Amino acid sequence: MIDGAMVWDENGNLSMATTTFTYQVIWQGVIDFSGATPSYSLSIPGFNPANCVFMIIPTRAQDVQSAENDGLGNSKSYPYVTTAAGQVTVLPKNPSAGASVGQTRIVAKAYAIKFST
C-alpha cells in the first residue's frame, strides 16, 4: 500500500503522487485588506517562482463572491500578487486599474509553498 495523496487524470493515469515529490510551507500569515493596509511586501527567504507557489485562501464567508454578477465583486476579489526570488508583493487591486476601480477588502490566509522532487 502506498501512503500519501494521489491524483489521476481523466484517462485514469496517475499524474501526481506525494511519493514522487515533497513540499514545504516556507511562510504563512494573514493578508488583511479590511482596513487601511495598502499593500504587503513580504520577504520570504527561499522563495523562488520556479519551484514555489503563493496561495491566498479567504477566511470569511462574506469574502466569497456569491455569483459572477455580484455587485461587490471588486471588494471580494483576490488581491494582485507578483513574485520574485525571495519576495512576494500583494496589492489590493491591479496597479493598471483606474482610480475609480474598487479594491479588495478580503481577509485571507496566505501560504508560500516550496516543491521539490
Rank of each mutant, 00 (worst) to 15 (best):
73 G>Q: 10
92 P>L: 08
10 E>D: 10
85 A>Q: 14
117 T>L: 13
48 N>H: 09
58 P>H: 04
37 T>P: 01
52 C>M: 08
72 L>M: 13
10 E>N: 09
76 K>H: 04
48 N>T: 10
113 I>W: 00
11 N>L: 13
68 E>V: 12
83 T>S: 05
61 A>P: 06
8 W>L: 12
1 M>Y: 15
24 Q>C: 01
86 G>N: 10
36 A>H: 08
108 A>N: 04
22 T>F: 11
42 L>Y: 03
35 G>I: 06
56 I>E: 06
21 F>S: 04
1 M>N: 15
30 V>S: 06
92 P>H: 11
110 A>R: 05
90 V>G: 07
13 N>K: 13
45 P>W: 04
2 I>D: 15
79 P>H: 04
16 M>V: 00
91 L>V: 05
89 T>I: 12
37 T>K: 14
91 L>T: 01
5 A>T: 10
38 P>M: 07
1 M>W: 15
98 G>S: 10
66 S>I: 09
11 N>E: 14
34 S>I: 04
53 V>G: 07
31 I>Q: 09
39 S>G: 08
78 Y>I: 08
20 T>E: 09
93 K>N: 01
73 G>R: 11
11 N>A: 15
3 D>Q: 11
97 A>H: 11
103 Q>T: 11
33 F>H: 01
28 Q>N: 12
51 N>V: 05
31 I>K: 02
2 I>A: 15
76 K>P: 03
10 E>I: 03
111 Y>Q: 08
116 S>T: 07
97 A>W: 09
6 M>F: 02
52 C>K: 11
70 D>A: 12
7 V>L: 09
18 T>W: 00
5 A>C: 08
71 G>I: 08
19 T>H: 09
87 Q>P: 07
69 N>A: 15
9 D>K: 01
66 S>T: 14
23 Y>T: 07
53 V>N: 10
2 I>K: 15
116 S>P: 02
106 I>Y: 06
69 N>G: 13
69 N>E: 14
89 T>P: 05
112 A>T: 02
29 G>K: 10
53 V>F: 08
23 Y>Q: 10
9 D>H: 03
70 D>G: 12
21 F>E: 01
70 D>R: 09
